[in-house]
Design a binder for these strands. Structure first.
Length: 569
RNA sequence: CGGAGCGUAGCUCAGCUUGGCUAGAGCGCUGCGUUCGGGACGCAGAGGUCGGAGGUUCAAAUCCUCUCGCUCCGACCA
């Protein structure tokens, strides 16, 4: 491609509405352009990169035994109602009414469609396992699109769905997908980690997320040097040890007017939050429930729900709290509360001489020791891991960072097949629900994550595997010798299968160098009078400072080799 | 949906507090000339519903009301 004919609108300045590095660079390098909040055009350069990502995914999915198909974006809302997800997704689903007034949704994902497809066409275990995938635009009316292309209302996703007669068979495919994902992300040149994950409202039991650690990701990661890794929702910290025995104080009531927050309480009484018990009152399936946490810890609702055996949990309103405790919000405590389920975090169970609410407005009590002053019927891990916690596997310090989720694999089970009646007959002729797995990859996020992690002060530094072009030829002048040499290199490299961008523009050298760095093509050939006087041209990697001088024919060989060695995983 | 901020040239912004002449700068763009190995310079130019609607006023980019859009924080999220 000749640069003079290409549509690559680079800019010198950062866009005003971009906050994070990848977003700024994607706009400056002419990869994307925003149409509206959460809706971006992929410009030719950006689209080339996106298509390369797509092709890597396609090749690896095919190699792993999955088959590509293409499903509709528009889906009857009725189908969504049957799995309960019309309600579960709520306003995130984009709807419209067609000319007959039928409620239609734009697919945010395709479990319903694929499950009904397979239900209608597969009746026997003999056709299983089956693994089908598509690469398609998905629609979600996000509460808040953000971070450039990281969270948008319209995005490209690869979603695969597998169908099985047995859990063992599902696990085999799950493992294959897991390995295929590793190859895909390796080929994309990403540094990623794999974490245990909550499966979320999609349902299912086992799940792993593929994350690229960055400073700006939306997800929080917890890691240990021993290899333990989980996302924050799932992460478990090592239990807190029992403190050395001290003499147990007697309970005393203290006047704490207006101290409704932990901060106010600790300042008023000059105690650390570690000595206070936070009493959270929640509603689970219509019943009140009390969660006790050390005051410097945060509740993990998913863990609490699991410990309590409940589906949905939400914070109780002020009225419920006042009725239950007889005190205003902010003065609740476990001592003396009757007839309500109490679940204590493990860290609370090892406390003594603690401070907590007195169930009397404007009063707290001190000298509280769990076990002595109130019962601990259920002790569980119901908190978020936090800075300073230790690894549950090896006892080492847990490390916290942010990350971008680029892929997610789930073992779904029979949630959708049950809801949609997707059954097959097994060997004995019994009717069995299909056991499912599903596997997603966010293509746009791969691109953003790659740029977020691969860039320097001058611009993007594309990994070879997903670079829009593999090599850029910078032609420094219009002298016939320079032009002819550049042209010959261009022809030779293209003939060898390289993706070449030839900067033949009538602009000053400085502009060409700056632009080449900004758009981040991995290899750069410079053709200029100086080196050409010795019959040489310059070859440089984007990551290097100094070029090497080579004969043009040697340069072609060198480029071909570099491309090959860096494209392989 | 709650909180905060921002909408002025293609892009990045100044001007608004304290209303007043023809609405400015830099970058980019067009033409001519000089330059030509890391975003050159000179001259000449094109380019604006000051987000939109309504109001106050002799007079509104500037003040008031409403509205739309965008960004960030929160809530939410395969």
């Amino acid at each position: 491609m000749k640069w003079s004919k290409a549509f690559i609108p680079t800019t010198r300045e950062d866009p005003a509405d971009a906050e994070i590095r990848s977003h700024k660079l994607m706009v400056r390098a002419g990869l994307i352009s925003k149409l509206a909040s959460g809706a971006y055009t992929y410009l030719p350069l950006g689209y080339r990169a996106l298509r390369k990502i797509e092709q890597i995914i396609r090749e690896e999915m095919d190699a792993a035994g999955a088959q590509e198909l293409h499903m509709p974006v528009i889906q009857p809302a009725d189908l969504w109602a049957r799995t309960g997800r019309l309600k579960a997704y709520g306003p995130v689903l984009m709807h419209f009414n067609d000319r007959h007034g039928r409620d239609v949704v734009l697919g945010p994902t395709h479990e319903e469609v694929i499950t009904s497809l397979v239900a209608n066409n597969v009746g026997s275990y003999k056709r299983l396992p089956l693994n089908l995938y598509q690469i398609q635009t998905k629609f979600r009316d996000e509460y808040r699109p953000r971070f450039g292309v990281l969270r948008t209302r319209e995005f490209l996703m690869k979603d695969a769905y597998s169908f099985h007669i047995s859990i063992d068979d599902l696990k085999t495919t799950y493992q294959k997908m897991y390995e295929a994902y590793c190859r895909i992300f390796d080929r994309c040149g990403l540094e990623y980690i794999i974490v245990e994950a909550e499966s979320g409202p999609i349902g299912g039991e086992s799940s792993h997320e593929f994350m690229v650690p960055t400073e700006v990701g939306e997800d929080s990661l917890v890691r240990c040097s021993c290899g333990y890794a989980a996302n924050l929702e799932r992460a478990t910290a090592a239990p807190i040890d029992v403190r050395p025995a001290e003499s147990l104080d007697e309970i005393q009531q203290v006047h704490t007017p207006g101290a409704t927050t932990i901060k106010q309480l600790t300042e008023l009484l000059s105690v650390s939050a570690e000595k206070c018990i936070k009493t959270l009152i929640l509603m689970g399936d219509g019943e009140p429930l009390i969660a006790l946490l050390r005051a410097d810890h945060e509740l993990n609702e998913a863990k609490l729900a699991r410990a309590a055996g409940l589906e949905n949990i939400e914070m109780a309103d002020a009225e419920t709290i006042e009725k239950l405790t007889g005190a205003a919000v902010g003065f609740s405590g476990p001592v003396g509360l009757e007839g309500v389920r109490i679940i204590a975090d493990q860290a609370v169970s090892v406390m003594s001489n603690a401070v907590t609410g007195a169930n009397k407005t404007d009063y707290h009590i001190t000298g509280v020791s769990p076990g002595r002053d109130f019962a601990l019927p259920i002790i569980a891990d119901i908190r978020l891991a936090q800075q300073g916690d230790h690894c549950v596997k090896c006892g080492g310090q847990l490390q916290f960072s942010q990350g971008i989720e680029i892929g997610h694999v789930f073992q779904l089970g029979t949630k959708y097949s049950d809801a949609l009646g997707a059954n097959v007959q097994d060997e004995q002729g019994n009717t069995k629900p299909l056991i499912m797995g599903c596997y997603g990859i966010g293509l746009n996020r791969i691109m953003a994550a790659a740029i977020e992690t691969c860039s320097d002060k001058d611009g993007v530094v594309w990994p070879m595997g997903i670079a829009p072009f593999q090599v850029v030829i910078v032609q420094l002048s219009d002298s016939s010798q320079v032009v002819e040499t550049a042209k010959q290199l261009y022809k030779d490299l293209e003939a060898r299968g390289c993706e070449v961008l030839w900067d033949d523009r009538q602009v000053r050298p400085g502009v060409k160098f700056k632009d080449a760095d900004l758009i981040g093509i991995p290899l750069r050939i410079t053709v200029g009078e100086k080196a050409l006087a010795q019959g040489k041209i310059e070859l440089k990697r984007r990551t290097e400072k100094q070029p090497r001088l080579l004969e043009p024919t040697d340069a072609v060989e060198a480029v071909v080799q570099l491309v090959e060695s860096q494209t392989r995983s």
